[in-house]
Amino acid sequence: MTDSAPLFAGARPGTLKLVVLLALAIMLMLTDRQRGFLVSMRERALVLLAPVYELTALPAQMAADARFAVTARQSLANENATLRAALLTAQNEIYQRRAAALEAERVLAKVQRARQDALAGTLLRVIDIDLDPFRQRLLLDGGRELGLARGDGLIDVAGVVGQLSEVGARYSFAILITDPNHALPVEVSRSGLKAIAYGSGDAQRLELKNLPPNADIVVGDRLLTTAVGGRFVAGYPVADVIAVERPVDAAFATAIARPVSLLASNRELLAVKPRPSVGPPLPEVDQR
């Protein structure tokens, strides 16, 4: 045996060292949680980590490309047909909307000058890595260099996905609307009821807590973003209500909704900036 460590003696773990390091870790966690100023440190670390992420995303990227290459012609044709049908429906809807929008514009113009900022967005690629299956986070390949900022909204073809939580020079982390730490002001499109949709940690579930017991909300209602909070442009689809609970013995009703967007399964997302606000001033956001 050429073991250099003595078999029975020594190698006693340093309790003092443990205590010191544990205290350090706890202090780090508290600072990170309370002050959040470590966010900027993380944003800087993203520059270093980015190549690592790209590297680990490579196998999945290659697998996806290979899968795409061998997809049978038939399934592509089917997909094509489905998409064409969907496009027609969408086109039809667009025409109707356009007509409705024109009418609304005419009405609005009388009340005030309609603000029609062109909606600008930045297309970002989702880097396919596993951060933590129990947290709803994404890594995106775009950052300050593209003019992105913390809090920019993210949408996909179907609806709202989340927003940017940490923005590095070229890469950013996003938080999904289903993350338990995320809350989004929404509006019921049918009744105009305002509520806040909380993430639940489950990708298929948003919760609307603390609704008034007689709130005008039913299963099947579509939830849209509102401009409240200044993070999103009003009117993006967010989720569909799948259950409403009105317990007799509770002061509030609760609704459960299922997000309409593909959330983390997207390969590309559009980052949109909130429109320069014309309404009441936004709440002070602490710059951390």
Partner: peptide, 15 residues
């Protein structure tokens, strides 16, 4: 840093 968790969380657990 890599997983984007609370800074110190993994450090604490691994310790």
């Amino acid at each position: 840093l890599l997983f984007g968790t609370l800074l110190g969380e993994h450090a604490f657990r691994m310790l």
